[in-house]
């Protein structure tokens, strides 16, 4: 199956490992990811909350570009996924806004006719490919991994998408099928603080600390996430959190595609696990 791939800015730089592992996993399962030609930044929360017309317009430029190909768009970054889906939905619901945005797009010879579908890779893996097929392709068992599944806010909210908004289960089911143990984790859709890490650091540190603490207290040996910003706040800032709260956390935070890649038999380097600031995880039991 073919999909249009929208990497987003973060997957080009600080979280290249996420992009790399998504590509590995998809090609392993026989799916083609074709990168969207000349994509631009989705605008993120920053633009959307500050200049809405500009935010919708630049986000819609990607949708207009993607519309030329008759494929679903896969957006792994949670912020990109939310912003692109939200733009898509609001343009459908508000004809006035749609007209206004098309006026902007016309400036560079584009127009958008509302036909694109935005998908998250987790959604594609579970609903298009299916857990059974993934299980077939696995080489290693995930036995020994005690996973805290951290979905974050933006892939399940604001509208109900492919999973429940309060108690999502897609990752839990996936990893359970591959032999991992999912620990009790009530923080699965709690907020890590997001961009507040740059603007109100104290608030974001407190939120991120809660996410790590709950995982550790419930016996997890790794946190698995779907969002680059969550990964940044919860992993890279662990040192800062330790200093601020006098704690001693050192728990790896991986992308769900990195864990899947391990089950498929790829090594740390191929999956970008060697770029983590923490130790990473190991799977040893062959199937």
């Amino acid at each position: 199956m073919d999909y249009t791939y929208y990497p987003g800015c973060s997957l080009e730089s600080a979280h290249k490992s996420y992009g790399d592992s998504v590509k590995r996993v998809f090609s392993h399962l026989g799916c083609n990811l074709i990168e969207l030609e000349d994509w631009n930044c989705c605008g993120a929360t920053m633009y959307m909350s500050v200049k809405e017309t500009v935010g919708f317009a630049i986000s819609a430029r990607n949708l207009a570009l993607a519309e030329k190909h008759n494929r679903d768009v896969v957006a792994p970054c949670s912020a990109c996924f939310t912003v692109l889906s939200k733009t898509n939905r609001y343009l459908k619901e508000l004809p006035d806004l749609h007209q206004k945005i098309n006026e902007c797009l016309a400036e560079s010879g584009l127009s958008y006719n509302l036909s694109v579908k935005i998908r998250h890779p987790l959604d594609v893996l579970i609903n298009d490919i299916g857990i059974d097929k993934i299980k077939e392709k696995a080489v290693y068992s995930l036995k020994g991994l005690k996973i805290a599944n951290y979905y974050g806010c933006q892939i399940v909210r604001p509208e109900r998408g492919f999973d429940d908004r309060e108690e999502p289960m897609t990752m839990d089911n996936l990893f359970a099928a591959l032999g991992a143990e999912n620990v009790y984790y009530p923080m699965k859709v709690k907020c890590c603080g997001g961009m507040l890490m740059t603007t109100y650091e104290d608030v974001a540190l407190k939120l991120s600390k809660g996410i790590i603490e709950t995982a550790v207290e419930n016996g997890a040996n790794c946190i698995v996430t779907t969002c680059p910003l969550c990964q940044m706040n919860v992993e890279a800032y662990q040192d800062v959190i330790n200093k601020t709260y006098n704690t001693n956390f050192n728990i790896p935070v991986l992308f769900f595609t990195q864990i899947l890649g391990l089950a498929f038999g790829y090594n740390d380097k191929e999956l970008g696990i060697d770029t983590l600031l923490t130790e990473g995880v190991k799977v040893t039991e062959k199937l």
């Binding site: 000349d38 919708f56 317009a57 630049i58 945005i101 902007c104 560079s108 010879g109 584009l110």
Partner: peptide, 19 residues
């Protein structure tokens, strides 16, 4: 950097104006 930066900037300018 994106290739069609000029077109992109024109979109922003128009949107700013409508904003």
């Amino acid at each position: 950097k994106i290739k069609d930066l000029e077109g992109f900037q024109r979109i922003i300018a128009k949107a700013e104006q409508l904003d």
